[in-house]
Computed example of a mutant assay.
Amino acid sequence: MPDSALDLRQDAARLTARLVDFPSESGTEKALADAVEEALRELPHLSVTRYGNNVVARTGLGRSERVILAGHIDTVPIAGNVPSRLDEHGVLWGCGTSDMKSGVAVQLRIAATVPEPNRDLTFVFYDNEEVAAHLNGLGHLAEAHPDWLAGDFAVLLEPSQGQVEGGCQGTLRVHLRTEGVRAHSARGWMGANAIHAAGPLLARLAAYEPRRPVIDGLEYREGLNAVRIEGGVAGNVIPDACTVTVNFRYAPDRSEEEALAHVREVFEGCGVAELVVDDSSPGALPGLAHPAARAFLEAVGGEPRPKFGWTDVSRFSALGVPAVNYGPGDPNLAHKRDERVETELILHCEERLRRWLTS
């Protein structure tokens, strides 16, 4: 078999190792997308389409329900952790093992080994998830070919340690700018220090008490935090400008507009000269009351948890498709130099999905 080929007869753990050894940092996914497309086109029960480095495969059995299994094929930059390494405890180490090539391996195995599922299936493999939102392949598919993403329910195989995580938080990032008057630091009374002027808004952040709303039985925890501060001209100059970057992670019962209004309200009266939105992505409600979601929960077991963080379930939610996160990786290990995944959990997730789709 050529080095560029994927053997879908391998179990999901071995297939994960093969995918990890296929470097695909964001923006360099073409070779892996080629291999995924080639492997899927060999399966006669699937129709395969491609848009850029995004590959979509579908069954056409006329079932009453269609389920989407989706995952991104890119990783963050490699940190000396490729090729993969399997240790004596059955743990696979390497870039992307957890986020999320183990989930992609499970997708590929289901595509190859479940030719007649009890629900029609759409498999989505997309690029550029780990970088700026405007580059996201799933977003490009949603804009150019929303019909390819039509379905009744979606499972995003993001790392969740084999537990269902419902919905996701929204995220808003803003720049808060304070102003002053530049002067020589030896005569500071002749100026006004913009960094000092940021004190009230930092105090407001330190005293902030985030909400913990319960939605569909899941408790989400919001967070409003300073993530960066910039200011200063030179070691002998009173600064006339300072910018504090604040990130608001909010529960999915707020809209983007409501989240921004809340942030403006929090910092009212703090002397902020300008508030600029740098990034904004809406959250997604859990949707656990949907019949397909209930059936999925019954099949895979465990207690659902809220998703702390933003994932592409938000894009499915915007398309009217209820979605959950469910994958074998550990989200706490994502992007780390010592990223790893338990091979037993990869096989467990594969078997649970197969049982749901064949029972």
Rank of each mutant, 00 (worst) to 15 (best):
H140S: 12
L347T: 13
D279V: 03
I346T: 02
D7H: 10
E265Y: 01
L138P: 01
G283K: 08
V272E: 03
T122P: 01
S98R: 05
G320F: 09
E219R: 14
L149A: 11
S98F: 05
T28H: 15
E65M: 12
A194M: 06
V114S: 02
H134S: 14
Y250E: 05
L201A: 01
E265L: 06
E222Q: 11
A192Y: 07
A57L: 05
A334I: 08
D74L: 12
G166F: 08
E29N: 11
P213V: 12
A293E: 09
A318M: 14
V276F: 00
D127T: 14
P306T: 10
A132R: 13
N54H: 07
A323Y: 04
V237P: 00
G151V: 06
R249K: 13
D278R: 15
P328S: 10
E209H: 10
D278N: 09
Y220A: 03
E258N: 06
L46T: 03
I229H: 01
W189N: 07
P83E: 13
G167Q: 07
R177C: 07
G223D: 12
G223V: 07
D11M: 08
R173I: 15
I68S: 05
N136M: 12
G62H: 14
E143L: 12
L260W: 09
F308P: 00
A31Y: 08
Y126T: 09
A144C: 06
V164D: 05
E274Q: 14
A186R: 10
G287P: 00
A142W: 07
D99N: 15
Y208A: 12
E143Y: 03
A241G: 01
F308E: 07
T178M: 02
Y208I: 08
M190P: 00
A5H: 13
D127H: 13
G60V: 02
I238F: 02
I346G: 00
L43Y: 10
V341Y: 00
T75Y: 03
L201I: 06
C242F: 08
L46G: 01
P77A: 12
A133D: 11
T49W: 10
E344G: 15
G166Y: 07
F153L: 05
L157F: 07
L121H: 05
A259F: 08
L275E: 09
T245R: 04
A144L: 13
A112H: 11
R294N: 03
L135I: 11
V91K: 00
Y250S: 02
F248N: 03
A17W: 03
L46I: 07
S84E: 05
T171H: 02
A323R: 04
L46Y: 03
S255Q: 09
P282N: 04
A12V: 09
E265Q: 14
T97S: 12
R173A: 11
S102P: 01
L92M: 06
G301T: 12
P322A: 10
P77S: 11
F153R: 02
A12Q: 04
S160C: 06
R355T: 15
G231L: 03
F308M: 11
V321G: 00
A132K: 09
D120Y: 11
V104S: 01
S98Y: 04
S26I: 08
A132C: 01
F22M: 03
P291F: 06
P291K: 05
N236W: 06
V91G: 01
V276D: 10
G191M: 13
T49M: 09
A207N: 08
E116T: 15
S64G: 15
E25I: 13
T343E: 02
